[in-house]
Deep mutational scan, measured.
Amino acid sequence: QCIKQELICKWIDPEQLSNPKKSCNKTFSTMHELVTHVSVEHVGGP
């Protein structure tokens, strides 16, 4: 049986000017979605 898990993006953008810096905190249900999000939204490139 599949256990529902919540994956949370903890990326902190080093360019943020606010202190304390905020992490992204978007939630995902699969590791694939999380990896895709980080690749596209934070790292950039294909």
Rank of each mutant, 00 (worst) to 15 (best):
K10F: 03
F28Q: 02
E15D: 06
K10T: 15
S29V: 08
L17D: 13
Q5S: 07
F28H: 00
C9F: 00
Q16F: 05
H37C: 00
N25H: 14
C2I: 15
E15I: 12
I8C: 08
Q16M: 06
H32W: 13
S23V: 13
D13H: 07
P20H: 01
C2Y: 11
Q5E: 14
C2T: 13
V43N: 14
W11D: 03
K4Q: 04
I3S: 03
E15S: 11
F28N: 00
N19W: 02
K22L: 09
S23T: 14
C9I: 00
S29L: 12
T36F: 04
G44F: 05
K4D: 14
Q16W: 10
D13C: 08
C24D: 03
Q1M: 09
V35K: 15
T36A: 08
G44Y: 05
K4M: 09
T27H: 04
E41S: 11
S29E: 15
G45A: 11
Q16H: 10
P20E: 10
E41Q: 12
E41I: 07
V35C: 11
P14G: 07
L17N: 13
G44I: 05
I8H: 11
E41T: 11
H32K: 10
V43K: 12
K22C: 05
S18P: 08
K4F: 03
L7E: 13
I3W: 05
V43L: 06
T30W: 02
S18M: 05
Q5L: 02
H42E: 00
L17H: 02
L17W: 03
K21R: 06
P20Q: 06
T36K: 13
I12P: 11
Q5D: 15
V38G: 09
I3L: 06
I3F: 03
E15R: 07
F28E: 03
C9S: 01
E33P: 01
S23N: 14
S39R: 12
E15W: 07
L17A: 12
I8F: 13
E41R: 05
K22R: 13
T36D: 10
Q16E: 04
L17G: 05
E33F: 00
P46D: 11
C24I: 00
S18T: 13
H37W: 00
E15T: 06
C24N: 01
C24G: 03
P20K: 07
N25S: 13
H32C: 08
K10D: 11
E15H: 07
G45K: 08
S29M: 09
E15V: 08
V43F: 12
I3E: 05
C2A: 09
T27I: 15
H42Q: 00
F28T: 03
I8M: 11
E33Q: 10
E6W: 01
W11L: 09
V40Q: 12
E33Y: 00
M31R: 14
C9A: 02
I12T: 11
E6N: 06
S23R: 15
Q5R: 10
H37I: 00
K21I: 08
Q5H: 05
H42W: 02
G44P: 07
N25F: 03
I8R: 14
E6G: 07
P46I: 00
K10H: 14
K10N: 15
E33M: 01
N19F: 08
K26P: 03
T36L: 04
G45C: 10
D13E: 07
T27M: 14
V40W: 03
D13M: 03
E15Q: 04
I3K: 02
Q1N: 14
S18C: 10
K10Y: 13
T30V: 04
V43W: 05
T30R: 04
C9R: 01
K21Q: 13
H32Q: 14
K10Q: 14
S23G: 13
I8Y: 07
K22A: 08
I12A: 05
P46R: 07
Q5N: 11
K21E: 12
K10P: 04
H32G: 10
H37T: 00
S29I: 05
S29H: 12
L7G: 04
N19E: 11
C9G: 02
V35H: 15
V40F: 03
L7P: 14
N19T: 13
L7M: 14
Q1D: 14
H32M: 06
P14K: 01
E41M: 05
M31E: 15
C2N: 08
P14C: 05
N25R: 14
E15F: 07
Q1Y: 02
N25Q: 13
T36N: 07
K21A: 10
W11C: 02
Q5A: 10
V38A: 08
E41C: 11
V38P: 04
E15K: 12
D13Q: 04
M31S: 15
G44D: 13
T30G: 08
N25W: 04
V40K: 09
N25V: 06
I3C: 02
I8Q: 13
L17S: 09
T36M: 05
E33R: 02
T30D: 10
